[in-house]
Design a protein around this nucleic acid. Sequence first.
DNA 1: GGAGATGCATAAGGGATTTATATAAGTCTG
DNA 2: CAGACTTATATAAATCCCTTATGCATCTCC
Lengths: 120, 120
Amino acid sequence: MSLTSAATLATLDKTGPRRITELAAAEGVTQPAMTVLVRVMEEAGLVERTGDPSDKRVTLVCLTEAGASYVRTRRQAGVDAYARLIDELPGDEVEALAAALPALRHLAELESHAREGADR
Amino acid sequence: MSLTSAATLATLDKTGPRRITELAAAEGVTQPAMTVLVRVMEEAGLVERTGDPSDKRVTLVCLTEAGASYVRTRRQAGVDAYARLIDELPGDEVEALAAALPALRHLAELESHAREGADR
DNA sequence: GGAGATGCATAAGGGATTTATATAAGTCTG
DNA sequence: CAGACTTATATAAATCCCTTATGCATCTCC
């Protein structure tokens, strides 16, 4: 599964159904790339396409139950892997990490904004 | 320049000349991929191949001056970009980040060891 | 109601990587 | 010390994921 596919599933999980164009912009790929990705993920049973009744041009993409469970499994695996690593750190370092969490979150947010500016 | 190329240059900068197979393992790609990468970087003037006199099968890859300067420039650009972001954080968050640096370094080291184990 | 804008799909091409295989050099064994 | 394995790299073909270019259907607006 490509990195972009995984990121797209995560985005769908976070924000609910999206149109193809929105997903492409969110993941920083072109619309044709996202069209193909969605087809592949649909064939894998991870997402479904549903037409938008108010605009027959758009196809809304939403997670299937299998897709949602895939996202959860993958996220949990990541969390577990990091938890195992953090368990090996001395206690004072764990505390320092915890204390830095707001700063790290803030930094990630600044970075994503900077990336938006650069991409367009 | 591909991500793997940049990582390979950084590895060469950190650890000195390496053989193709070592570089491939270090970057997590196959040997033929690294062979091609090295040829491209050689044509770009960033690395040089030198035979190992004690084993005529191996080709040692080392950074040229241009390659080393490329690595330094790129690294500095990254440092600058992060510095700009960190400048926007409130002072207490900067302090928290600084306090967490040893933990982050330690975590990165644990992670790279874990990755070694998983890849083989 | 027709012109332009918008959303998606398809086609063709390129870059980076993979597997499979070839070639050459080293190592070891009887 | 000769042949059989092993190791280091190279080459070839195929694959994956992405791009640009383009087509088609639908919407919007005067």
